[in-house]
């Protein structure tokens, strides 16, 4: 906790400013160090860090998607169920042909089919959400609440409420493989984060997205096609969910109707902790990733220390509330 003292008055203003603008990063690093100290470095071994990254990778795709949506002052409750549905669809095309209980028993599919199918499912739902919100003028909360239920229903119907297991090894390797010490999953996340970062910071579209979240009316007046841009954000998010679904099924080696449950809450919490403001127009890709890793670290740390899972829920809840409180304070002061 000594780190906090560095924000004292005799320290150069630069550091002070850095701390105040990068609170979540500082918090994350401080927690990492703390966890390292109380476990004698055991929690920071390579294997542990690999586990941490692997555990959060799928959620990272969800967080990037919903993070963009929240920046437009929207929300997406369908995230978890869409990821689950796309995991189920992709898994169904990746089952070994000789597995008797396979959904398409006896049929051999090309290895790219489950990947494309999973992403297509996500994209379709993203487009659906986008049309409802942008052109149907439905409040995002309600539109995505509806599509969440539709995705849950489709997931149960498609899987006939059973588990789709026995996935091919060459499919599982997509998520379970390593390049040296680096899990493939980390590579995908880094690529996705860079793509979204470029989109948000170095394209006209990115500027439009921030403008819409800041003030949709003003954005419209300044010549931005708000409806088309909004729809695209939901579509991009859907594509990211589709990828998350594929990676999820490959990682678990199975998918079932429970896959993806409650993931929307984890992803929304992560980006909120990472400083994405629900008031719209504020937030960075870096923030999303730090928020995600912060919650991931808390999860991992508590598992490592053997904390009862019931208490883990309390801690997570407390941290989310605190993060939003801080966010509100920051904005109140600006005004």
């Amino acid at each position: 906790m000594d780190n906090t003292k560095t924000a004292g008055s005799n320290i150069p203003v630069k550091i002070k400013n850095f701390l105040s603008t990068h609170t979540s990063l500082v918090t994350f690093i401080a927690m990492l160090i703390f966890l390292g100290i109380i476990t004698n470095g055991n929690a920071l071994k390579l294997g542990s860090l690999q586990n941490l990254v692997v555990a959060e990778a799928v959620r990272a795709f969800g967080a990037l998607g919903v993070g963009m949506i929240i920046i437009t002052r929207g929300i997406d409750l369908s995230l978890g169920q869409v990821i689950g549905l796309s995991a189920c669809v992709s898994a169904s095309f990746a089952q070994t042909a000789d597995y008797g209980s396979a959904l398409y028993a006896g049929q051999e599919f090309a290895i790219w089919l489950p990947v494309i199918a999973g992403i297509a499912v996500g994209a379709a739902f993203g487009l659906f959400n986008g049309v409802l919100v942008a052109y149907g003028n439905l409040p995002p909360f309600i539109a995505t609440l509806g599509s969440m239920s539709i995705a849950t229903g489709l997931k149960l119907i498609y899987t006939r409420a059973s588990t789709l297991g026995s996935l091919k090894n060459e499919y599982k390797i997509i998520s379970q493989g390593f390049m040296g010490p680096i899990p493939y999953l980390l590579i995908y996340v880094v690529i996705a984060a860079i793509v979204i970062w470029v989109l948000m910071n170095h394209t006209k579209q990115g500027k439009s997205i921030y403008a819409i979240g800041g003030n949709a009316q003003a954005a419209k007046v300044s010549g931005i096609n708000v409806k088309a841009q909004l729809m695209r954000v939901y579509l991009y998010a859907g594509i990211l969910y589709g990828m998350a679904g594929v990676l999820m099924s490959a990682r678990l080696g199975l998918a079932n109707p429970l896959t993806g449950n409650n993931m929307e809450l984890d992803a929304i919490a992560a980006v909120t902790v990472g400083g994405i403001s629900h008031a719209g127009g504020v937030g960075t890709v870096g923030g999303m990733m730090i928020g995600l890793m912060t919650l991931g670290l808390i999860n991992f740390g508590m598992t490592f220390l053997g904390v009862n899972s019931y208490y883990q829920l309390l801690v997570k809840g407390g941290i989310i509330i605190l993060a939003v409180y801080m966010d509100m304070r920051k904005h109140a002061r600006k005004e």
Binding site: M1, N3, T4, A7, L19, T23, V26, T27, A30, M31, F34, L35, I38, I298, G301, M302, L305, V307, V315, G318, I319, L322, A323, M326
Partner: peptide, 12 residues
Amino acid sequence: LTLVLCLAVLST
């Protein structure tokens, strides 16, 4: 910041 850190420390 202190609050967050305290919570993180306490939680674990």
